[in-house]
């Protein structure tokens, strides 16, 4: 079962929830935690494991070989302004390229062969029953989506779908998060009970509804802010799976790279509530 942990607003507790939930589940069962926030992966700060595998990841970009009639078709077919026809030159902006191959395939002179360019590095660690995989985008690279997509491919090739696979997703509502959540069975939206949290939660709910995913909300730092998030979820019939209390000691544990549930039973109880909703999900699917 694939579960993504997402949020519109950054800093609501995606990583806190992902690392605690995965580690707690791994006390009993095999679990995979995947950090897909490739622009700033930080789940790894909470996982001490042995490195199983490490590899560079590449994306394919066109490289002009100068042997060309300068027809300009490459520029015309590029939707991303990544290939420009400038007089007697063709200029490629690899950071803008989405590896769609259009310029390369359609070039009548075959003057734009696709070549690999390093875009990031994938790391696979093991700690007890917990497998952890993260990818980190190379500095200067702008495209998160191809690396997220290749990381998902690595997961599908190396782990059975029967085990729980948790994806710590990028924040926001744009391409990277859509790539991270589009194939999962369930999305957990983490929010904080503030007007800012509510504003971004609404945007994320709109996105998830468009993708037609099953989802539920976890309210983090419960106790601060106002009633807005709870009221919204009630009115929109959105399941609130758990409420993680606002507590300075939790933030302190997080800042030291420690797992919260090991110190606080009430947090563990909230994780149990989330896990129970997964069980219902499985039952629901088999009916």
């Amino acid at each position: 079962m694939d579960i993504a942990i997402a949020s519109g607003k950054g800093g609501t507790g995606k990583t806190t929830l992902a690392t605690n939930l995965a580690s707690y589940l791994a006390e009993k069962d095999k679990v995979v935690l995947v950090d897909l926030d490739v622009e700033e992966p930080n789940s790894g700060l909470f996982i001490n494991g042995e490195i199983v595998h490490e590899m560079d990841k590449f994306k394919m970009i066109p490289v002009w070989n100068k042997d060309c009639s300068l027809c300009g078709l490459c520029q015309e077919v590029c939707n991303y302004n990544a290939v420009l026809h400038l007089g007697v030159h063709i200029m490629v902006f690899s950071e803008l390229c989405h590896s769609c191959y259009a310029c390369s395939e359609l070039c009548p002179d075959s003057a734009l062969p696709m070549k690999p360019k390093k875009m990031g590095r994938l790391k696979h660690l093991q700690h007890g029953k917990l497998s952890f995989v993260e990818s980190r985008l190379e500095i200067g690279q702008e495209q998160a989506v191809p690396l997220i997509s290749q990381t998902k491919k690595y997961i599908n090739e190396n782990f059975y779908q029967e085990i729980i696979r948790i994806y710590d997703s990028p924040p926001g509502t744009s391409c990277p998060v859509i790539e991270a959540v589009k194939d999962v069975d369930y999305v957990i939206l983490v929010t904080e009970p503030t007007p800012f949290g509510l504003h971004d939660l609404k945007l994320t709910v709109e996105m998830i509804r468009k993708l037609d995913k099953r989802y539920g909300v976890v309210i983090n730092r419960f106790g601060i802010g106002d009633e807005g998030v709870s009221t919204y979820c009630r009115e929109e019939n959105i399941a609130v799976l758990a409420k993680i209390p606002n507590r300075r000691a939790i933030a302190e544990l997080y800042s030291r790279g420690e797992l919260v549930y090991k110190h606080f039973n009430d947090v563990k109880e909230q994780l149990d509530l989330i896990i129970r909703s997964f069980d219902q999900l499985v039952v629901g699917e088999s009916v």
Partner: peptide
């Protein structure tokens, strides 16, 4: 244009 407005405008100037 989500991305690449700069090179695109520069291409016009070219």
């Amino acid at each position: 244009e989500a991305h690449g407005a700069g090179p695109r405008t520069a291409q016009k100037l070219f």
